[in-house]
C-alpha cells in the first residue's frame, strides 16, 4: 500500500550527502494511513491547516521524513523523536551525528541527510508569472540584482529561483525561519561559498560566511539548493516511488 525505499539503492552515509526527491502525487492511498506514523503533536499541527491540501502535504512530508530517517537510523519510523530549535527546525533527538532538512513546493518534496554538518535545503517551483525584478529588489543584494537584470527575460525566472533557493537554503542551514536576524540583501549567494555583500557590513553576527552552496534541478521547472559547511565529493540523488 505504501511504498518503501529499495534497500539496495541506498548508499551508506560516510562523508556524503543523500538527497531524496519525491512527487507527493505518487504517495497514494488514504491520508489516514500516513497519519498513523505521526505523533500527536504532528497531527495537531497538520490539523491546524485550513486547506486540506496543505494539511496533506505536511502529513506526507512528515511521513517521508520518518520513513527515510528510520532507514538511516535503523529504527522504527514511528519511534523516531525530533527536537526543534526555537525557529522550528527539526533534528534527531538521539543521533547528533546526522543532519537533515526537508522542503517542498507544490507537489515536490526534497529531503536531505548528511553526516557532514548542519544542512539546509530549499525547493521552489519556477513561477514565471511574477515581477522577478521587483520582488528581487527586496531580497537580493546589488550584485545579485545586477546579474538578474543582465540575464535575458526568458531565463530570468530560472535565475531568480536559483538565487532565491540558495539564499533560503542558507537561512535554513542556520536554523532560522522567518525571523532572520540579517538583511537578506547583505548576503551574496553568487559563488560556491557564501559571501557578505559589502566589507563594511557588521560582521559581529551569530554566524560566519563559511557555508557552501550547491544548486540542482530535481525536476523540470523546479529549482533547488542545499547549503552546508563543506561540499562532499559525491552527492547521491534518489527518487522515491
Amino acid at each position: 500500500m505504501i511504498n518503501d525505499p529499495k534497500d539496495s539503492s541506498i548508499s551508506p552515509i560516510q562523508n556524503s550527502v543523500q538527497i531524496w526527491i519525491a512527487d507527493l502525487e505518487n504517495l497514494m492511498g488514504d491520508i489516514i494511513n500516513y497519519r498513523e506514523l505521526l505523533t500527536e503533536d504532528e497531527i495537531y499541527r497538520a490539523d491546524r491547516y485550513k486547506f486540506y491540501r496543505d494539511s496533506a502535504c505536511f502529513i506526507k512530508g512528515r511521513y517521508l521524513m520518518r520513513m527515510l530517517s528510520a532507514h538511516y537510523l535503523d529504527s522504527k519510523p514511528s519511534s523516531i523523536q525530533f527536537d526543534y530549535n526555537s525557529f522550528g527546525k527539526p533534528s534527531f533527538q538521539n543521533d547528533l551525528r546526522l543532519f537533515f532538512n526537508l522542503s517542498h513546493s507544490r507537489n515536490m518534496v526534497v529531503f536531505v541527510l548528511t553526516d557532514i554538518s548542519e544542512i539546509g535545503i530549499d525547493i521552489e517551483y519556477v513561477d514565471k508569472n511574477l515581477d522577478h525584478l521587483d520582488i528581487g529588489k527586496s531580497v537580493f543584494s546589488d550584485s545579485e540584482m545586477d546579474l538578474l537584470t543582465a540575464v535575458p527575460g526568458s531565463k530570468r525566472a530560472e535565475k531568480f529561483f536559483e538565487l532565491w533557493t540558495r539564499k533560503e537554503a542558507f537561512i535554513k542551514a542556520l536554523g532560522y525561519g522567518f525571523s532572520m536576524p540579517v538583511d537578506l540583501k547583505e548576503i551574496n549567494v553568487l559563488s560556491q561559498q557564501l559571501a557578505f555583500e559589502s566589507r563594511t557590513y557588521d560582521h559581529n553576527l551569530p554566524f560566519d560566511p563559511s557555508w557552501m552552496l550547491y544548486s540542482f534541478e530535481p525536476e523540470p521547472n523546479y529549482k533547488a539548493a542545499i547549503c552546508l559547511r563543506e561540499l562532499p565529493g559525491k552527492i547521491s540523488f534518489n527518487n522515491w516511488g
Binding site: 491546524r48 491547516y49 485550513k50 486547506f51 491540501r53 496543505d54 502535504c57 505536511f58 521552489e124 511574477l130 521587483d134 520582488i135 527586496s138 531580497v139 532565491w164 533560503e168 537561512i171 525561519g177 522567518f178
Partner: peptide
C-alpha cells in the same frame, strides 16, 4: 481571521505578500 501559518504561507510567499 485565518492564521497565515495555517494557510501554509512559507517565507517566499511572505516576501511576495509584503512586496
Amino acid at each position: 481571521r485565518d492564521n497565515f501559518f495555517e494557510l501554509g504561507i512559507n517565507s517566499f510567499s511572505a516576501i511576495r505578500l509584503f512586496n
